[in-house]
């Protein structure tokens, strides 16, 4: 579904991605682990061109996302993205955050968009907050709304960029619970996270990135319990 082929990216002189190659299959849950600065966020941001790359290719369903004739906005509608900082629209209600894309992009009528948004809010157990402004919600609730907003567009894949890193510890689980259910429902997911427990339990594949490369990948059991690289070993020991 998503293929990275020798993806390279520089920020000035600094190379953040140094030739990443890998594939995410339909229905698969891939978690990206790595210390900060290893390039994992940049990699998933490149999928919908929130980040431009300078070398290699990112393919979505076989087509280069930076290719000619690609309608990037159409592509982005098929790829849900959840940010570390939630990025809800503060001037819109919870419901308004979700219906905006449905009305504007899916061309749904008000009533249909509302129904769809409410069913997504139900899925993240926040139907009672539909008319609240985001500023009235806790961090965990905001992130669940952000997930609902992305899901409402009916994406083929969901990308999560450290979805729990900005949360107080007691709110992490409510977000992880939603993500776990999503994975069980068969959603294709790429999750950048520091939650090793989540990776072990939910992921089909774990990629460990270091200095802009995937240095180790495989099933969680082999990567997490039997790490071959020193970098991964020390990363895991620090994470515990």
């Amino acid at each position: 579904m998503i293929r990275f082929e020798s993806v390279e990216k520089w920020f000035g002189q600094h190379q953040v991605l140094a030739g990443v190659t890998g594939e995410v299959k339909r229905g698969e849950v891939v978690t990206l682990l790595g210390s900060s600065g290893s390039g994992k966020s940049t990699l998933i941001r490149a999928v919908t061109r929130l980040e431009a790359i300078q070398g290699g290719q990112v393919l979505f369903e076989g087509a280069d996302v930076a290719g000619r004739g690609v309608d990037i906005n159409r592509l982005r509608q098929r790829v849900g993205f959840v940010f570390q900082a939630f990025n809800l629209f503060p001037h819109l209600t919870v419901l308004g955050n979700i219906t905006l894309g449905l009305e504007r992009l899916r061309k749904m009528g008000k009533a249909a968009a509302r129904d769809r948004a409410m069913s997504e809010l139900d899925r993240v157990s926040l139907a009672d907050k539909a008319d609240a402004l985001p500023s009235r919600l806790s961090g965990g609730q905001r992130q669940r709304v952000a997930i609902a907003r992305a899901l409402a567009m009916d994406p083929d894949v969901m990308l999560f960029d450290e979805p729990t890193s900005a949360l107080d510890p007691e709110m992490v689980n409510e977000v992880l619970r939603v993500m776990r259910t999503l994975a069980q429902d068969g959603m294709t997911m790429v999750v950048v996270t520091h939650e090793i427990g989540f990776a072990r339990e939910v992921a089909d594949t774990v990629w460990f990135l270091d200095k802009g490369r995937i240095v180790e990948s495989g099933a969680p059991a082999e990567v997490l319990d039997d790490p071959r690289h020193d970098r991964l070993r020390s990363f895991l020991s620090r994470a515990r």
Partner: peptide
């Protein structure tokens, strides 16, 4: 905040919306 534009982009909203 930069995240506002990014969130709009990520949804697939174009320049005018």
């Amino acid at each position: 905040p930069k995240g506002q534009v990014e969130a709009a982009k990520a949804l697939g909203l174009g320049y005018f919306p």
